[in-house]
Design a protein around this nucleic acid. Structure first.
Lengths: 199, 199
DNA sequence: AGTTGTACTGACAAAAATGTCAATAGGGCC
DNA sequence: GGCCCTATTGACATTTTTGTCAGTACAACT
């Protein structure tokens, strides 16, 4: 069909292996967050990343490889975020709870959790456990008045509520005729209320 | 390979269309709850239902047909459950909240919600909205002291917390070294605390 | 410039999942 | 009994998704 001069030599983007993996995982993450786990197909991830699907296989071996790498990456990002927020020297209990809530309420984090739970990979969140342990340790060392179990209980509730809001907050709020941020506001009130010793 | 007498005439189970659909949807629901949305494949649903996959197509037209029928069925079951629990004449506000919480905390309901949200079908929960509206109406008629928005706010929080517990309660509790029911207990305490006018 | 390692690609192959169709058989009805 | 309707099935066909492989092009090193 083509007549003109010889086809131009094809120019390629050549990344370092790390950059290539990063690029692909970022594309996969976007798909996960925007369209759900079902959308993580070889061809779609490749197209979103701007490469050919054989290239995805080259870097991850298989689609399952992409999935587990993505899980690990997102879990690491989440724990990093939590640790950074909590290690700020002025992080008193209340502020720390906010940070924890914020981290888990983020859309990506919430959907990661749902993904892990629905696919039976919930055990993969061990890293989160370590972070929580670290938080508790810090708290106990700083403020000897708190009981360890109570602290863990509080964090447990905090995380569940945060993920619930991150997952369903906007949709459910809208469904019930309230502004999209309403669920978040209410949840924070609830957390703070409990914190300030409401009972 | 076989030698003996001629093969026995194949006996079939022949159901009414309604029973056949019901049978298939029940199998699909079990798959959804136990293995997640990814497990809803034509062949797997058929095997679990004890029929051939062509039969599934016959009754639902396509796999997408099975999915939407399952969504509708589960939503209907959920709303029915809520309504029944709430229409008991002695359902005061506290008991009603318990019933609401229980309905949404059930594993199937929680996973249904996650499924709908992740696949972008969150809008399908309109039926839930109608139920909530009905609840609010009833409440307002019975107890003129409550403000409509406050009631909706409370229900919103209640549902999100319940679904969060239903989805992540057992896994997260175990992950943090607590008994599997711990998250549920804490959440109920929280709900009750708010109910009894903690703030 | 030549050599080398490997990220990258296109084309092909295999597997998995979905859908089509003619034929079979169960159950109600005459 | 014979007839009709259709739920059910097995075999085939199509589409989607995943994976293989030989060759190409980019960058680093000599």
């Amino acid at each position: 069909m083509s007549i003109g001069p010889a086809a131009a030599p094809k120019t390629r983007v050549r990344r370092t292996p790390e950059a290539a993996r990063e690029n692909i995982l970022a594309a996969a993450e976007a798909l996960l967050v925007e369209q759900g786990p079902q959308a993580i197909k070889l061809a779609d991830v490749a197209k979103a990343a701007g490469v050919v699907h054989a290239n995805v296989i080259h870097h991850f071996g298989s689609i399952a490889g992409v999935e587990t790498a993505l899980m690990e990456r997102m879990i690491r990002q989440l724990t990093d975020k939590v640790l950074v927020a909590l290690n700020q020297p002025d992080a008193v209990l209340g502020v720390g709870a906010q940070a924890l809530f914020d981290a888990f309420e983020a859309k990506g984090a919430a959907r990661l959790a749902a993904w892990l739970e629905l696919t039976g990979e919930g055990a993969r969140m061990t890293l989160v456990r370590e972070v929580v342990d670290e938080i508790v340790q810090t708290r106990l060392a700083r403020d000897s008045g708190v009981d360890r179990d109570a602290a863990v209980d509080f964090i447990l509730l905090n995380i569940i509520l945060a993920v619930g809001v991150g997952l369903f907050g906007p949709t459910l709020s809208a469904l019930l005729g309230r502004p999209p941020e309403r669920a978040r506001e209410l949840a924070l009130e609830l957390i703070e209320g409990r914190l300030t010793g409401a009972r």
